[in-house]
């Protein structure tokens, strides 16, 4: 494989006191890949993701994101990634345009460039009428689509999505995944966590975390074959039922 590795993770560990949230996980992610990061609640997904985003220091192990070290070069990492957190995190008291302008500006884009990309984005999303509305007034599905668009607005190398479709209706979820495919096709690597097993099927490769460890890592098809089942639901159940931890 001579393809570019954008995330390399080796024995990455994060402890809080004597609780090991992330326990020696290792994986590589290739450019343009859609990588599904699965696991039960409390398995350590968000913690691992926060380390890779440069929001949290690991306790031990190694990892590079977009070629930068997660211990020392967090600010370099941040220039090259997009992040969409579990909590909706655009400003509800700013309009769609103002949100896009702000986040574009923060990533150092020129005003002209922001304007050009914004027009295109508003067109693609079909939000011409709502562009000057407060983001707080939008329905959840639109908010999530907008948040994703803002996360990739500065054309990062990798985008991290933490349960992006939680609480969203199936039609919008489908549209959301169309957007993800489109982004991946343009060369952006997608790192996504989800609890929906139908979404897991859309990924190129999947890892399943159980109690802080990566228990399985392969394409959905290989995983199903290996466990001799027909759906990802069953794969997940087989792997995660041994979990001792759950939220709180």
């Amino acid at each position: 494989m001579d393809q570019e590795k954008v995330i390399i993770c080796k024995n990455l560990t994060k402890r809080f006191g004597d609780f090991t949230a992330v326990n020696e996980i290792s994986f590589d992610i290739t450019k343009g890949e859609i990588f599904g990061f699965l696991g039960a609640n409390g398995a350590g997904k968000t913690t691992a993701m926060r380390i890779l985003c440069g929001l949290s220091f690991p306790t031990s192990g190694e990892a590079t994101v977009a070629g930068y070290d997660v211990y020392k070069q967090q600010e370099q990492i941040k220039k090259n990634i997009g992040y969409m957190s579990q909590k909706f995190s655009l400003y509800e008291n700013l309009t769609i345009l103002e949100n896009i302008e702000f986040f574009g500006g923060v990533y150092g884009l020129e005003r002209k460039e922001i304007k050009r990309r914004t027009e295109k984005l508003i067109d693609t999303l079909g939000l011409q009428k709502e562009a000057k509305k407060m983001v707080g007034e939008l329905p959840l599905g639109w908010k999530q689509k907008l948040a994703f668009s803002v996360a990739i607005f500065h054309q990062p190398k990798i985008v991290f999505l933490d349960e992006p479709t939680g609480g969203v209706d199936p039609v919008t979820r489908r549209q959301f995944w169309d957007m993800i495919y489109e982004a991946a096709a343009s060369g952006i690597t997608i790192f996504v966590t989800t609890h929906y097993m139908d979404e897991a099927e859309y990924c190129n490769r999947i890892s399943v975390m159980v109690d802080g460890k990566v228990e399985a890592l392969d394409s959905p098809r290989n995983l199903k074959e290996k466990h001799q089942v027909t759906t990802m639901d069953e794969v997940f159940y087989l792997l995660a039922r041994g979990a001792k931890r759950s939220d709180n």
């Binding site: 941040k78 990634i81 957190s85 909590k87 995190s89 400003y91 923060v106």
Partner: peptide, 13 residues
């Protein structure tokens, strides 16, 4: 509280 600070912290600001 509303979580936007995390979004700020993940930017190169």
């Amino acid at each position: 509280e509303i979580g936007t600070i995390e979004q700020i912290n993940v930017t190169p600001i």
